[in-house]
Design a protein around this nucleic acid. Structure first.
Length: 404
DNA sequence: TCTGGGGTCCTAGGACCC
DNA sequence: TCTGGGGTCCTAGGACCC
């Protein structure tokens, strides 16, 4: 088997788009966002600015940092253009997020040449035609290709020849393995394991002891370079959720009710748009100290109803709050729906009054969906007005919940 | 003045059934 | 009557990814 699998990853994507659209931003440390850094340019990363970082901290690290508001619909449009270029070479393109994808060119090399040449052509075309830097890793497996693209950044191409895989992999730090985050890295380091090579040599039983059966086995097999995953397009979503952080405040029942209605509305309208319903509803609360708790319940029947999801979530959150009377303030509320099923067939065209209550309610909510489709989300809705004023802009939420 | 939002998968204990 | 094992579902929490 040869190296025909590509991992393509747009560099500092949101920030690169802003620099593309406004040439005066090029070469400058910029951050997309305000209260929170959603993305930082490479010039800003040099100072230690990272995505997810509070704006204040970022300013402290880099006083000349320029904050720019996001152009969220542009991000979607440009990313789609980039991966359309990839699809000129093969239909086997698996988007894993807005800014990255796996591409299997095994069936295309007889037309377009060796995989590294295809990768170089894609990079050149994306640069010439769209103007964005794209890093690509080429290897025999997904895992190696992904690591190669990380090593290639910024704006580079790294090819891992099949006969040099161990040579490439073993000196690299363990945190480059997909699934090794801060906690796992720390645990491994405590055992003296810091490189992938050391991990590959470690006793599998010891790793399972240390990390749990599943994580231990996965990490060990990736370190030993055993990764059978194929490139596939079209996985179905397994859960949908919405949450909103707020300034610390007492859990006033009225605020909780209105916020959960808004969140339930976001989740349920997405469910209805996908013709899906869910049986398990989860309510989440985060307290002032950032400790979070959740309560969930599985219903006898799946639902996509705004009012049912909102009401159940309210009960769950109220129960969670009652279990923690010592907590005086909350900092986040969330709603999730899982256990998804395809929507049941509609009830036949009974007269409105003769339909069951849930179906009548769903018809009402569908009507709301229809108005929004025509006039925009803000045109009609549940408790959305006050929520818009706080936190992250809705266009970013829309982007985060997009379908790839 | 301690960090956004949307996801996936795993674990562990308990309930319940056979 | 007691003991045992296996399987599945549910719930709460956690690690990790983009």
């Amino acid at each position: 088997m040869s190296a025909t699998l590509l991992h393509a990853d747009l560099d500092a994507f949101y920030a690169s788009v802003e620099q593309l659209m406004d040439s005066t931003l090029r070469g400058l440390p910029i951050a997309v966002g305000g209260g929170v850094v959603l993305a930082a340019s490479y010039e800003a990363k040099v100072f230690g600015v990272r995505g997810g970082m509070p704006g204040r901290q970022a300013r402290r690290l880099c006083p000349e940092l320029r904050f720019v508001p996001g152009h969220f619909s542009e991000y979607q449009r440009l990313a789609d253009e980039v991966f359309a270029v990839c699809e000129d070479f093969t239909p086997v393109v698996e988007r894993v997020s807005i800014d990255e994808a796996f591409i299997d060119v095994a069936g295309s090399t007889h037309l377009f040449g060796p995989a590294p040449d295809i990768a170089a052509t894609i990079r050149r075309r994306v640069s010439d035609e769209i103007g964005l830097p794209l890093s690509i890793g080429v290897a025999r497996t997904k895992h190696l290709a992904k690591i190669a693209s990380q090593v290639a950044k910024p704006d580079g191409l790294v090819v891992v020849e099949t006969e040099r895989e161990s040579e490439f992999l073993h000196p690299l730090p363990v945190e480059l393995i997909w699934g090794v985050g801060p906690v796992t890295r720390e645990r491994l380091e405590a055992e003296g394991i810091t490189t992938i090579g050391q991990l590959a040599d470690a006793d599998p039983n010891q790793l399972e002891q240390l990390l749990g059966a599943a994580v231990g086995a996965k990490v060990a097999s990736l370190a030993r370079n055993d990764d059978p995953r194929r490139v596939t397009s079209g996985r179905r979503v397994r859960s949908l959720s919405a949450q909103s952080a707020n300034r610390r405040r007492p859990p006033d029942p009225d605020f909780v009710t209105r916020t959960l209605l808004h969140l339930a509305d976001r989740v349920s309208s997405r469910l209805r748009a996908k013709h899906r319903m869910g049986r398990t509803i989860t309510g989440r609360v985060r307290f002032a100290d950032l400790r979070a708790v959740s309560r969930s319940v599985t219903l006898a029947e799946a639902t996509s109803s705004t009012s049912i999801i909102a009401e159940v979530a309210r009960e769950l959150v109220m129960n969670a709050l009652a279990d923690h009377p010592e907590e005086r303030e909350i900092s986040l509320l969330g709603v999730a729906v899982s256990g998804l099923e395809d929507e049941a067939l509609d009830q036949p065209a009974l007269p409105f009054a003769a339909r069951s209550k849930p179906v009548a309610r769903r018809d009402l909510e569908r009507a709301v969906d229809g108005v929004r489709e025509k006039f925009g989300r803000g045109s009609i809705g549940f408790a959305s007005v006050e929520l818009r004023a706080q936190g992250v802009p809705d266009p970013f939420r829309d982007l985060a919940e997009r379908d790839l």
